[in-house]
Design a protein around this nucleic acid. Structure first.
Length: 575
DNA sequence: GCCGTTTTCGGCCCGACTGTTTTCAGTCG
C-alpha cells in the first residue's frame, strides 16, 4: 500500500469518527496524521521498517501502529470495522457545502437518509425542513449545493480562476471607498487548482455596508451565498465562489496573511505565535492586550522572529519550521529567463511554423528556443520519422544561419514505449541537442511496471529530460501509477532533468515533490509544452510551481543563457 | 489521539456568518 492510500484511509477514519460524534480532537489527530503522511518525502515503507514512523510529528503510538498494519498487511481491521458501522453514502454527503458531520448525522438518524441521491429527493419532498436545527433555508441551500456540485465538480484550473479574479478586482477598484485590495487565497499561493477566489480589502468602518452592496451588485454575479458586514460570498456566473472580507487599514496585513495561508499554515503559525506568548488572528498580533502594529506581511514574520515566508510556500508543509530556523530556501523569482524548451510546431501537432515560433520568442526577449516535436510512435500527433527529422534539422540549420543573437536548439519529445525503450535508435537520438522523453500511451501499467519503464527511459544516455512525469490532466485525468520517489532518485543519480510541464492543464512535476527533487539535486525546466504561439507564455505558470517546489535559480535550466545552455547540453551529450 | 524548557494530565487556533434559535450550534476557511 502506498503513501497516498494510507493518508486517504486515515482521513476517512477521521471523517467517520466525526460522523459518529467522537472526540473532535481525536478526529483532528487522524486528519493531522493523514496530512503528515501525505506530505512525506521519505519512503513510507522504510519509515515503518525502521520504526521511525512514530517519531514523526503528529504520529503517536496509535497511529503508527495502524499505519504499520496498513503497510505490512494492506488492510486495517479497525478501519474495516469502523467503516461497516456507517453507510458509505454519508462520506459523500459530508462533502456538500453547508453539510457537516453533525447535520449529516441528524439527517441519517432521523430520516434514515444515507446517500446524496436520497438526500436530494428528501429535500424536494420538504422532509428536511421540519427537522430540528434545519429549516426552509437549509433545505434550499443543501439542494443548491447538490446542484452546484453536479455542475461544476468543485475546483477550477488556475488560469480560469485567475481570469475571474482579475475581472472582479477591476470591478471592485472602481469603488473609491476601498483603500487597499488584494486577491489572496490559493490563487495567491499559485496552487494548480482553485476552489474559490478570496478578495481582501481595507476601508473605513462606516463604508463597509456600501462596499458590500457594491460587491453584491457585481454584474457577473449568479447568486449571493451570504452577505455580512465584514464578510460576504457570491457565486459568479462561471460557477466560482468569491469571498470578500473587509477590515480597517491597521488589520490589512494580518487579514491578507490570514486569507492567503492554507488552513494548515495558519493553524500552525497561530500555534507558534501562541508559544511565543502572542495571540494572532486576522485582525492583528497581540501580546497581553497590547496590539503589535504591522503594516506589511514582512513585518508580521519579523515580529514572530522568523524568515519571511513567500506566499507560494504557505501550505503548512514544513515552511514554518524552516522559517523559524531561518533556513528557508532562496526561491527562483522568474529572473533571469533566457529561453524555452519543449515547443511543438507544424512538423507534428503544433499550430505554428518554426519561424513563427522563433519570431514570437524573440518578441519575448528570449535568447533561444528548443523545438520538440513528437516522434514517430505518436502517429495521432503526426510524429516525425527519421526522414522528417532530417528535414527539420536542415530547416533549423538554415534558420540559425540567418539569425544573430538567437539560437534554435534541436530537441525532440520522444515517446517512451511500453517496455521503456524509445522509438528512435541511438544514432537518430544523437542528432539532437537535447531529448525529452515522455509517456503518451499505455497508462494502465502496474506501478512497478510504469516505474521501471520510466527509469529505463531516462537511463538512456541520450535522454536529457523527463517530460510530464505523471501524465496527469488536472481535473481531467488521474496521474498514472508511478513511484516518483524512485524516479527522482534515479534522475538525481544520472543527472537528468525533470520538467515542470507548465501547461496549466498539467503542472507536472507536482510541486509537492519539489523538496525531494531538490534533495536529490535534480534540476528542472519550465517547459510550456506549447502547441501554438499563445501557449509559449504558459511558462509563467511553471514559475509559480517551481517556487512552490522550492527550486532556486540554479536548479532551473531556463536561467541558463544561450551560451551556457549549449555547453550544458554538449557536456551531457554522449560522445 | 497527540503532545510536553509550566510533561504523563489537560490542553488542543480563531473568528464570521447563517439559520435556527431566544442565546447558540454548525459550518467554513
Amino acid at each position: 500500500m502506498d503513501r497516498k492510500s494510507v493518508a486517504k484511509i486515515l482521513k476517512e477514519i477521521g471523517t467517520i469518527l466525526e460522523l459518529k460524534g467522537d472526540n473532535p480532537f481525536k478526529t483532528r489527530a487522524y486528519y493531522n496524521g493523514a496530512r503528515t503522511i501525505e506530505s512525506l518525502t521519505e519512503n513510507l515503507n522504510n519509515l515503518v521498517e525502521s520504526g521511525e514512523i512514530a517519531n514523526l510529528r503528529g504520529i503517536g503510538q496509535a497511529l503508527s501502529d495502524k499505519i504499520s498494519t496498513l503497510i505490512k498487511t494492506g488492510s486495517l481491521p479497525y478501519y474495516d470495522e469502523l467503516k461497516s458501522t456507517i453507510p458509505s453514502g454519508l462520506l459523500d454527503m459530508i462533502k456538500i457545502p453547508g453539510l457537516g458531520a453533525k447535520k449529516v448525522k441528524i439527517v441519517y438518524d432521523k430520516l434514515g437518509i444515507s446517500s446524496v441521491g436520497e438526500l436530494e429527493y428528501a429535500c424536494r419532498e420538504n422532509r428536511l425542513r421540519d427537522l430540528e436545527g434545519f429549516g426552509e433555508k437549509s433545505q434550499q441551500n443543501i439542494l443548491s449545493g447538490i446542484e452546484l456540485r453536479k455542475k461544476y465538480n468543485e475546483r477550477f484550473l488556475y488560469p480560469v480562476a485567475l481570469n475571474e479574479s482579475e475581472k472582479i478586482k477591476n470591478y471592485l477598484i472602481q469603488n473609491e471607498k476601498i483603500i487597499q485590495l488584494e486577491v489572496a487565497g490559493s490563487l495567491r499561493r499559485k496552487l494548480e487548482t482553485v476552489k474559490d477566489i478570496d478578495v481582501v480589502c481595507s476601508c473605513l468602518e462606516e463604508d463597509r455596508k456600501e462596499i458590500m452592496d457594491f460587491f453584491d451588485s457585481y454584474p457577473e454575479k449568479l447568486s449571493t451565498i451570504n452577505k455580512g458586514e465584514t464578510k460576504s460570498t457570491i457565486t459568479l456566473e462561471s460557477g466560482i465562489n468569491c469571498d470578500l472580507r473587509l477590515v480597517e487599514e491597521d488589520s490589512f496585513a494580518f487579514l491578507l496573511h490570514h486569507s492567503t495561508g492554507s488552513k494548515e499554515h495558519n493553524t500552525e503559525l497561530r500555534g507558534y505565535a501562541k508559544e511565543l506568548g502572542f495571540k494572532m488572528n486576522e485582525y492583528g498580533l497581540f501580546s497581553d492586550e497590547q496590539n503589535i502594529a504591522c503594516t506589511t506581511e514582512e513585518e508580521i514574520f519579523e515580529k514572530l522572529n522568523m524568515d519571511y515566508i513567500p506566499c507560494e510556500l504557505r501550505e503548512g508543509m514544513g515552511e514554518i519550521e524552516l522559517a523559524q530556523k531561518k533556513q528557508l530556501p532562496e526561491l527562483y523569482d522568474g529572473n533571469p529567463f533566457y529561453g524555452l524548451f519543449h515547443i511543438h510546431t507544424t512538423y507534428s501537432d503544433g499550430a505554428n511554423t518554426i519561424e513563427e515560433i522563433v519570431e514570437a520568442c524573440q518578441d519575448l526577449n528570449l535568447q533561444y528556443v528548443g523545438i520538440c516535436d513528437h516522434s514517430k510512435a505518436a502517429f495521432y500527433a503526426n510524429g516525425l520519422n527519421e526522414e522528417r527529422v532530417k528535414q527539420q534539422h536542415e530547416e533549423i540549420n538554415k534558420i540559425n544561419a540567418s539569425l544573430t543573437n538567437f539560437k534554435v536548439l534541436k530537441g525532440i519529445e520522444v515517446d517512451v514505449l511500453t517496455d521503456g525503450s524509445l522509438d528512435f535508435d541511438d544514432s537518430t537520438l544523437s542528432e539532437f541537442d537535447f531529448v525529452v522523453a515522455s509517456v503518451h500511451s499505455q497508462f494502465n501499467l502496474s506501478e512497478d511496471a510504469m516505474t521501471e519503464r520510466i527509469i529505463k527511459a531516462i537511463s538512456n544516455p541520450f535522454v536529457t529530460m523527463l517530460g510530464h512525469p505523471t501524465g496527469r490532466l488536472l481535473l481531467g485525468r488521474e496521474p498514472y501509477k508511478v513511484n516518483m520517489e524512485k524516479v527522482i532518485e534515479v534522475a538525481g543519480k544520472l543527472g537528468k532533468v525533470i520538467e515542470i510541464n507548465s501547461s496549466p492543464y498539467r503542472l507536472d512535476l507536482d510541486w509537492r515533490l519539489g523538496k525531494l527533487a531538490n534533495e536529490h539535486g535534480v534540476k528542472t525546466a519550465l517547459n510550456p509544452d506549447a502547441h501554438s504561439i499563445e501557449g509559449l507564455t504558459d511558462y509563467k505558470y511553471g514559475i509559480g510551481i517551481a517556487r512552490k517546489g522550492r527550486f532556486n535559480k540554479e536548479s532551473v535550466l531556463n536561467t541558463y543563457n544561450a551560451k551556457k545552455i549549449e555547453s550544458y547540453f554538449k557536456e551531457k551529450h554522449p560522445h
